[in-house]
Amino acid sequence: MTNPTKIVSPDSVKDEWFRPKEKEQGRAESVVRPSLSYWKDAWRRLRKNKLAMVGLAFLIFLLFMAIFGPILSPYSVTGTDYPNQNKAPSLAHWFGTDEAGRDVFTRTWYGARISLFVGVMAALIDFFIGIIYGGVSGYKGGKTDAIMMRIIEVLYGLPHLLVVILLMVVMGPSLTTIIVALTVTGWVGMARIVRGQVLQIKNYEFVTASKSFGAKTSRIIRKNLLPNTMGPIIVQMTLTVPGAIFAEAFLSFLGLGVSAPFASWGVMTNDALPVILSGHWWRLFFPAFFISLTMFAFNVLGDGLQDALDPKLRG
């Protein structure tokens, strides 16, 4: 060993070599960055995503107009005014009128009401059924899970839109029917996601720790599993909404949804079909524009949330 370190004899060690390090008052333990909860952190990242924020802003605007638009307008949704039929957009009728003289502006916001209502209700119902079914299936595991998943696999193979159409025929067209029909098939996707998440998380150490402290199953599900599965669930919900809005418009377009004189974007697009040859562009443009923009907004918001809520990308 050719260690060049000088060897100091114990006698020559002086006390003044050793003194306590000056205390940096509290500095070492203080957290430099403000502590961020999962949700605050997600929100911080979502805010940086310009496209998602544009989507969110549009949806807030749409919600406002859906609630107040029909009230603010002097015209009613179903009120006909035959002398003023098929008038182009003007100061009196901002979006023009349809073949019965109904105000397209009022009808567009009324359509927004229906679309948002159908979309949000479908997403919420899917959410509750999906969480219970997927949660039980994933948490119980074993035989229960195997049977429940077989059922899901069979249901997943059903052509959803056909089942929805069939239900509409039997139950008669109405808003309730649309929502019921959409959720009868729609919860399957949510249940699959919840199950996958639960299956993964229930083996993590913090769940084991919780169990070893004697936590009850219900507490583990509420406190440990659900909060940690919320990210993908919220993303799935955000992406369910445009699907439901599309399905409502699709059915109304086929004449199986909301029917005239009431307005939905699908009905308005369908009504515009015979008159596009006569150059009444506003009849098609406004419902088409807003339905596309709404689907766009939900899609970019969903994408943004997906990135913002992904724990792997947490920086």
Partner: peptide, 22 residues
């Protein structure tokens, strides 16, 4: 891609007829 996902097929069909065919 984002636009394509957002525009429903029946809306696109109607627009195509109006613009390209008519």
């Amino acid at each position: 891609a984002v636009v394509g996902i957002s525009v429903p097929n029946f809306v696109l069909a109607t627009l195509l007829i109006q613009q390209i065919a008519v």
